[in-house]
Design a protein around this nucleic acid. Structure first.
Lengths: 339, 339
DNA sequence: ATGAAAGCGCTAACAT
DNA sequence: ATGTTAGCGCTTTCAT
């Protein structure tokens, strides 16, 4: 068994309170006593039992981060940033996979394990607006993602529609006229796909371009293979286009690969715009022009918001849920030069 | 405050033991009693306090995974696989970043937080063989990585040297004669770099090729930028080569980019071999021939080994530390065709 | 400056 | 079949 306060106290010839005082840096201790206690701690190799401390204190020092899948670069980078921010706040991060599955997401929100961590940062993907009530949970919760708005929990997210509009306008400003979009979801209104499609639409309208349904590529998932497949279908259809706005970077890499295989030049024949600004975008060939949606800010802000909720829990009235939006930026690179 | 067993017991008019019995599916309970308890649980929205349960049971249901950095694709994929395997075993994963820093690694091994999780899967990068003693810790530990061998902890890893030799032999068999290596670490003997370099050497020796020091590209880190930089230096040096064995996939992507920028064809002028088989290797242009070192097996086996140690902790004598090695495989793709 | 003792919420002997 | 009770190891009043 592990060493306890009692054993240290016995060896040092003091009470456990005194040992506890030393451990917790209580200032008023006679130096001689402190020395004896510290010697005993060292001799026995005592380390405090955090579970007991947590039980007593009602805090665990851990927060949970629930993501669809760490295997996806976007989420892996988000996780890395959340871990850094949490560590700076003295918290440890527990990671859960949801696979973007609605049932698993709902399950996770209700699991007793939630109460064993101090709060949850939750990137919802499978749930929809109808499930907003499930976010009314009895523990601190910060929502990421774009499936649910106006719910009962704090929400930290990006300006999807504005950013997509800016991205499309960027392509228009660089002289492109037939802009395909890759990654749309049939019938979706909220959700990243729906919002980004809406931004694309608005930009076209503003510029006075008609929206050609033939230029809208639908795909369920946003993996490389989906981008490749959609681009292949687009090429096979014979429709003309001089740019492709891909709703995330990974789709863009798949699409670029197919364009190059088909002997088309990027950006000569087709300009490609991504979304997310994952690290790989800087290193692909050609490097990818994309939207930097502020994930780093989102990660930091999510942790900060959650820590605020944890700190004020039980103290005074519950502040209303707030939504915080990251600023975005278009990052010009080779796949879609400025003009 | 949260609802406790006492409150449920009071509402149901039974003792806490009975409530506990219902919660824990103890079979011998009168149906009427069970119903009343379940009604009370539902009415109050009771969920068990896992911290208290952990304190009582001496287990937390969490394991810790310590990695250099989740932002790196290799580690992100490893983390995803460990999380899946842990979840299947009913465990949750706590993630810690070490940044590959020796001090942080040593710190982490001693941290009281370790005792709050049931065990540690530790991918060491900054520590070296001299630090092996630090692995003699009073909790279940499984080591990953290649910095330390023969230590006091179980070790799950890959056949670096054999795999690197096989990769080099593959290039030789496909007709390459001047094979550069990218990612070597000056003076390293153990460590992935040292072992893989040794494998490369052995393959050349066997084939009767002299090893040309000009073909050895040293680089501290294994990021894309390092691969690019090293390849640039290699090209600038004017030394002739018809293949490059990159000690990880990320280096290979950087190197391929520079080759293509320089107007050289991959694999026409230079064949490129990677190591790791990260997901991107399937989708790069050209797709990357690489070594699949069995990370998926490593992740599953690490969790399984750790769970075994956790289960047998305190029961009977401590089994000797064991090393388990994954099988590797060369995955032929476009960057280095078979012949 | 230090000690005694209560109790965080739960499980499991040990009653009954 | 159900109740009583003693801890798990710690922090924290309240004494002294």
């Amino acid at each position: 068994m592990a060493v306890t306060l009692h054993e240290v106290a016995f060896l040092a010839g003091v009470s456990i309170k005194t040992v506890s005082n030393v451990i917790n840096r209580y200032p008023h201790i006679r130096p001689a006593t402190r020395d004896r206690v510290e010697a005993a701690v060292a001799e026995l190799g005592y380390t405090p039992n955090l579970t007991a401390r947590n039980l007593r204190g009602g805090r665990s020092g851990a927060i949970t981060l629930a993501l669809p899948d760490m295997g996806l670069a976007y989420f892996a980078e988000l996780a890395a940033q959340v871990i850094e921010a949490a560590e700076a706040a003295g918290m440890i991060v527990q990671l859960e996979h949801t696979a973007g599955d609605r049932e698993r997401e709902l399950e996770l929100l209700k699991s007793p394990r939630r109460r064993a961590s101090d709060g949850l940062i939750f990137s919802a993907l499978g749930m929809s607006q109808d499930d907003a009530d499930a976010l009314d949970v009895p523990y601190p919760l910060v929502l990421l993602g774009e499936r649910i708005f106006g719910g009962p929990a704090d929400h930290v997210t990006m300006r999807n529609e504005d950013a997509a509009r800016a991205a499309t306008e960027y392509l228009i400003a660089s002289g492109r006229r037939r802009i395909a979009i890759i990654g749309a979801h049939e019938g979706e209104v909220v959700g990243s796909a729906g919002l980004r499609l809406a931004g694309y639409r608005k930009a076209l309208e503003r510029a006075g371009f008609a929206m050609d349904p033939q230029l809208v590529g639908y795909t369920g998932l946003w993996h490389r293979a989906n981008g490749a497949e959609t681009m292949r279908a687009l090429l096979a259809s014979g429709v003309e286009f001089d740019a492709a706005f891909c709703l995330n970077d990974t789709l863009a890499f798949g699409a670029m690969r197919v364009l190059q295989e088909a002997g088309l030049s990027v950006p000569g024949d087709v300009a490609v715009m991504g979304f997310d600004d994952i690290e790989e975008a800087r290193y692909s060939i050609p490097s990818l022009t994309t939207v930097h949606p502020g994930q780093d800010w989102i990660a930091r802000t999510a942790v900060e918001t959650l820590m605020g909720r944890i700190a004020t829990q039980g103290k005074g009235p519950w502040a209303a849920a707030m939504t915080r939006l990251a600023n975005f930026e278009i990052v010009p690179r080779e796949s879609a030069p400025q003009h």
